[in-house]
Design a protein around this nucleic acid. Sequence first.
DNA 1: AAACAAAGTTAGCCACAGCTAAGATTGTTG
DNA 2: CAACAATCTTAGCTGTGGCTAACTTTGTTT
Lengths: 143, 143
Amino acid sequence: MPAQPKAKAAPRSSAAVEDYLERILELINTKGYARVVDIAQSLKISQASVTNMVQRMDGDGLLKYERYRGMVLTASGEALAKSITRRHRILTDFLRLFGLDEELIFHDVEGMEHHVSPPTLKAIEALTAQLRRQPALVARVRL
Amino acid sequence: MPAQPKAKAAPRSSAAVEDYLERILELINTKGYARVVDIAQSLKISQASVTNMVQRMDGDGLLKYERYRGMVLTASGEALAKSITRRHRILTDFLRLFGLDEELIFHDVEGMEHHVSPPTLKAIEALTAQLRRQPALVARVRL
DNA sequence: AAACAAAGTTAGCCACAGCTAAGATTGTTG
DNA sequence: CAACAATCTTAGCTGTGGCTAACTTTGTTT
């Protein structure tokens, strides 16, 4: 028995890794695949940085990567990416209630999202649903 | 005229710097002074790291620091610390509406706060005020 | 097929912000 | 005042995640 070959260690993810996962899933959903050059453009970082990170994420079991060829999310990578995307959407929906500038919303969500725990997210989701039924109240906040 | 001696460059601050400022102000408010050892304990990092950072913050004009002696916030450091503290309070007040665990609130706020822009903060502040007048609605979120 | 451009990779660098270990300073106390 | 403990500093290290410059691979185009 050769012991475990890979040392999985539960896919912990940093804010940076979460950003990558989010963009990779989005690219796969819209274009069918995620190329290094597109990820780089989307995150506004260099291709070299992307190559580097993607290799780390392969090592962490979040995706399968083949040099010069391409990448696919693993099951756990995809699950993580989806939950990150969902969190992003919930926070965006919440902030959109208040008539803030779209760019600002994006920027704030992009920063905050990595730090919002599941219970807090759930509360914000429920709150957003309630507020949608109270446009008068929301209007007072927008002023 | 010896030109400007220090190169101020507008006190940009990272998340880490903001955490330090927040704790330093709190220590000054409660104990009258901020010692390296207390900052370290409060942020759960080593004293060496605190010394290091405090020296950088001195260089950045956020505080005045004298080796082995102590520190005082500069005017701009104090202004920044106060606005950080205010932001922290507003976010905490908001999350407290939903009956979340205090520790969780603290943790989430500690992570998110550095990424919330002034307009977003203002909206959340106004929303919190409105929600305080709508306990029935809030109760539906808490469930 | 040769040449070229686009995409990807590697090597080596940097700043940030933590850490430990070892040494310096300070204040207290016998 | 000598010695001690507490505090603080320095030196040197680490990992993360960027960067540029130079090189390689791939695919297209003539």
